[in-house]
Structures are given as C-alpha cells and as structure tokens.
Design a protein around this nucleic acid. Structure first.
Length: 426
RNA sequence: GUGGCCGUAGCUCAGAUGGUAGAGCGUCCGGUUGUGGCCCGGAAGGGCGUGGGUUCGAUUCCCACCGGUCACCCCA
C-alpha cells in the first residue's frame, strides 16, 4: 500500500505499455533518420520569456495558467516546457545553426508539461516526438513534415488516417480575416453559447472549432480564411496542395482547423484518430515563420510537428495492433547456497558476458528445487542451469531445456558454449 | 477552472434495511529425500479514499474534501 500517490495527470508507464513506447520511438528514430533529421536534446526547463514571447502571451498556456512556472530566489522565472518548438528554435539561434547548411532538420523526443485537467488521451506530462525543418520557405518542407507524420503512423500499422489541412495566413493577411470573422460572428452573437461569446472576445478563431453543433450552419456560412490569404500565403498553400495531389496523398481541407499556439503561419495540419476520445489529434503541426524573430533572432522560417506518444500508443491498442512481446531467451541459475551459489553467480556473469540473458534465483537462504523451478517457469526461462553439490563434485552442471524438459549433464566450463550452440541452432 | 459518473485487498469485483469484511486472479510458502507448467493445501495482504456529522455503534446514512474517470475548455 503506497501512501504517496502519483501527481494528478502523471503516468507510470509499466513494462507492458513500455513495449508500445519502444515500438513508436524506434520507428520515429528510424523514419527521422531516413528523412535526414538529426536528433538533439534541449532542456526541459527554459526561461519563462521563451514561452511568453515564443508561444505567445495570448495563448491559453498563459491566460489559463497552464504552465508549470517557478520563481527562483533571485526572481528569475523558469518554466517546464509546455511544447518543444520554442526550445528547438532557441537552440538553433543560440548554437549558430543559421551558419549550418540550410535547412537544418532536427528533432527531439521527450516530455512536455501542461497543467490541464486530465482526460482520455490527455495528461499533464506527455511525451512528444518533435521534428522541425528550419531555414526554408519551400512548401516542399511542409510536405516533408506531413509525409513524415503520415508515414510514421502508416508504418506502425495505422489505418484510414486523413490529414486535416488548413492555412492560417500570416501577419499580412490573417488580421483582416480575423476582423471579418469577428464582424460576422458579432452580428449573430445571440445564437452563440456562453463559451463561444467569451471566445469571440478573446480569440474569435477558436469559435471555428467549437463543439457546439447548433452553430455548424453559422460557421459554414462564415468567411473562410482561404478567401483572405495574401498572394504569398495563397501561393504557398496552392503549391503544397499541388504536391500532395501529385503524390496521391489524400487530405481534407478543414477551414475550421485552428491551432491554439500563436506562432503558426501559413500551413497548419493535424492527424486525427477519433477512437481515442475527444482528444483525437495524434499529431499537430505547421509552419511558424515568425517564431525566431519573436524570441529575438533573425527571421528564420520553420515548419514542424509534434506527435503525442501516449495517444499513438492508445490508438495502436484500440486497433489491436500488438507491440512485440518477444523476450530474449533466458537462463535461470538454480543453486542451493554455499559453494553452489558462488558457482552459480560465476556462471551467471559468464553467460551475460557472452550475450546470453540470464538471472540467478535470489535467496538469502537455500530454497527448494521446486520453488526455484517454479520461478524459472514464471519468468519463462528457456534454460535452467542447476548447480548442486553433486554436480560441483563432478565439475558439471545440469542444464534443463524448459520447453522439452530435456536435461543434460555438461562440464561446468562448457556450459556457456553449450547454451550458445543450442540458441544458435534454434 | 466548470460539470456528469465513480472510490471495498496488487487486479476484477461481492457484501450487510447501520453491529467494525469476503471471493476469484495474482504473490509467497508447502504437497517426504534436488526438478517447472495442471492440481491440492496454507500464508501474507484491507482500520472498506480522507475528515467531519447523525447514532449506543458507520465501511453501509448525511456533508465536505481528496483522488480516479469522462466531457467542456484547451491541446499531442
């Protein structure tokens, strides 16, 4: 009985689930490599300003106090990262990656923290795989990020995923659109829910993805961002769509797709799996051409995506996709204390040095053979090596193959090679 | 931050119109001399989420709080 519990919204990932994590992360690393990305680590904690200026003080991370921020004794405010991109862009600037061959393609994997109320598929600590392409305006970079997103899921076994794609414009064209939208929605304010009325004041764009179905028609008739894009944004969007079409990659234009982080420009997209619950977004990303400037650097265009590892794992399980549970064949060393224990220990380490998974039956005082055999069975040992007094007297050990029950006497100093041969043969 | 549902052993769950709790699984030990998976026996493990209130007495009634879960919000 533990008296101290896990913090709200935190997760213990047990061995069974960890298999899914390994599968997802292995695939992410594999794909990132094939796409030419290099892995970096960035700190879990950054200065508060990185996120207030990067993510944007108008975003809900700030207004709803969803970040874990602590004020140090000297007054510095430091924050547990609520997302990856700002830190990666900061690292790009600080480490002079502007002088590397462009674009720079890097990714990071690790936890991020947001103090939200937990829900199906939503946790206060969650882990992300986060690739970014920095230093190019080419919409083919947007395509590459989207292809990486889709293919990661595809190669993991996901079926029937479609992209939700939209453009969110840029500082040139977006404000005009927001004005128009606000005007339109204000004129119909009376049919908005209280929540949406609140959003109308704070962030009218968010009404587009309101879950209030009674305003679906209202929104369908609302001004569309695509009709307001400036030439630059419109061309970018058209080019990206052309690439997707030419590569036969299906996607759904979703003009109601808006993202909560302020730094996005032009392309925004998500990949959904509705079976997870209300939190359907497996990954979300887009372009952020103004972020580097916002945190004090030169203008560096960028595009990236964040994958929620927990959500992908949940989705895989719901689709009955199994993570590999194959165990390395292993050996259990059985002994009866005294000299037999010493010999068993010696053999255990010798086996391990030779690449054979092995474990010794732990016991402060000698345990019965039956008990130790049961342990071998429970741990699904492939072999048991019995080191008893009789065997030691003859310089031998008894080796039992658990599945067949076949048992042989082997010279002690040949035990490791005997098992190696058996393993190689099978 | 708001709302619905839930809160009995590690897990899945029983339980009494209020008299201080059980099962299955799991774990550990054992079933004659050093041998597993089946079977059998035994043990450990819970002041029934926490704190108040009502009562002679509450795990069972009431309230609050905490936690879990789902949804809103927001997001991966």
């Amino acid at each position: 009985m533990t008296s101290i519990d896990r913090l709200t919204g935190m997760l213990d990932v047990l061995p069974e689930d960890r298999l899914y994590w390994d599968m997802i992360i292995d695939k992410a690393i594999d794909l990132a490599g094939r796409y030419g990305f290099q892995r970096i680590n960035v700190p879990i904690i950054e200065k508060d300003e990185l996120f207030s200026r990067g993510v944007g003080e108008a975003s809900d991370f700030f207004v709803k106090k969803e970040m874990y921020t602590i004020t140090e004794e000297d007054g510095n405010r430091i924050t547990l990262r609520p997302e990856f991109t700002a830190g990666i862009v900061r690292a790009y600037l600080q480490n002079g990656m502007v002088n590397w061959p462009q674009p720079v393609k890097i990714y990071s994997i690790g936890p991020v923290f947001r103090r939200e109320r937990p829900q199906a598929g939503r946790f206060r600590e969650h882990s992300q795989f986060n690739p970014e392409i920095l230093g190019t305006w080419d919409p083919a970079a947007d395509l590459e990020i989207m292809m990486l997103a889709r293919n990661l899921h595809r190669e993991l076994g996901y079926k029937n995923l479609t992209f939700q794609l939209n453009s969110t414009g840029c500082p040139v064209c977006k404000p005009k659109y927001v004005d128009e939208l606000k005007k339109y929605l204000s004129a119909h304010q009376q049919i908005l829910s209280d929540v949406d009325k609140e959003r109308l004041k704070r962030n009218p764009l968010r009404i587009l993805d309101s879950k209030d179905e009674s305003i679906d028609e209202l929104i369908a008739d609302a001004p569309h961002i695509v009709d307001f894009l400036c030439d630059d944004c419109a061309t970018h969007f058209a080019d990206l769509r052309q690439y997707l079409d030419e590569l036969n990659q299906p996607y759904a234009i979703n003009f109601r797709l808006v993202r909560g982080i302020d730094y996005y420009t032009k392309t925004v997209f998500e990949l959904w799996d509705k079976t997870i619950g209300a939190q359907a977004s497996l990954c979300g990303g887009g372009r952020y051409d103004g972020l580097a400037e916002a945190i004090g650097g030169p203008q560096v265009p960028g595009v990236g995506v964040g994958f929620g590892i927990e959500r992908i794992a949940i989705g895989l399980k719901k689709q009955d996709i199994k993570a590999s549970t194959e165990l390395m064949p292993s050996v259990l060393l059985i002994h009866f204390g005294g000299g037999t224990k010493t010999e068993a220990l010696r053999l255990t380490y010798a086996l391990r040095e030779n690449g054979i998974a092995s474990r010794i039956a732990f016991a402060r005082r000698p345990r019965s053979m039956r008990s130790q055999m049961r342990e071998a069975n429970r741990h699904q040992a492939a072999f048991v090596i019995i080191v008893g007094e009789d065997e030691i007297a003859k310089g031998e050990v008894a080796i039992r193959q658990m599945e067949s029950g076949e048992q042989s006497s082997v010279q002690s100093n040949k035990a490791v090679s005997w098992i190696s041969e058996k393993l190689n043969a099978s």
